[in-house]
Computed example of a mutant assay.
Amino acid sequence: MRRVARGAAVVATMAMVAAILAGCAFLPWSGGGGQSSASSDAMVVEVEVTSDAATASQLRVVVDAREDPQRVDQHDVSLPYGERFEVSKDVPFPLTGSLVEATAGQDATWIECRIILDGEVVAENRAEGAGATAVCEKKLRRGPQ
């Protein structure tokens, strides 16, 4: 009986390792929930910038993806600003972090930024005053966060 239980444990462990190496979407922690869909093939990073002014004097967005890093550098950006970035899950640890730096226009009294990762707010900040800069950053790392 022990030999059968030990053998079943070895088979289950090998199947789990093979599924991890293959990037299986059927694992409970993969977000796939056993169903394949286009949204489970990518992580979604959303960036939002708001202010009481019509424009931000400067905006910098960095989505640090291993396969396809994406960047926005703009001056005199119309607000509210929002953009969605998709990061493929084709590689281990596909996203290492995101950054938003937004500088308020001269007619602003405040500016806010927000980073949303797969529907969850992971960073937000508010800066007060004309010319103030709101900085939002989320670094992703292996292990406990």
Rank of each mutant, 00 (worst) to 15 (best):
D76T: 12
G97V: 03
L95C: 05
A5L: 13
R6G: 00
A9K: 02
L140I: 14
A54E: 14
G129I: 06
A104P: 07
A102Q: 03
V49F: 02
G34M: 11
D64V: 00
E137F: 09
G105N: 14
E83S: 13
P28Y: 11
A127P: 02
R84I: 15
E83A: 14
T55C: 00
S57I: 02
R141E: 13
M16F: 12
A15G: 10
G131D: 09
D64M: 10
M16G: 07
K138D: 07
Q35L: 12
H75D: 15
V121W: 02
V49N: 00
L21F: 09
S98D: 11
V135I: 15
D73G: 03
E67D: 14
A127D: 06
V10K: 09
V44F: 06
S57M: 07
R6S: 09
V87C: 06
S98Y: 04
V4N: 03
F85A: 03
V62W: 06
T50G: 04
G34K: 09
D73T: 12
D107L: 07
A9M: 04
E112P: 03
M1S: 15
S98Q: 08
N125T: 10
D118K: 09
V61P: 01
V17I: 14
V44D: 05
Q106R: 13
Q35W: 09
E46C: 05
E120F: 02
A123Q: 05
D90G: 15
V47M: 05
A127Y: 04
K139C: 05
A19S: 12
M1F: 13
L95M: 07
G7Y: 01
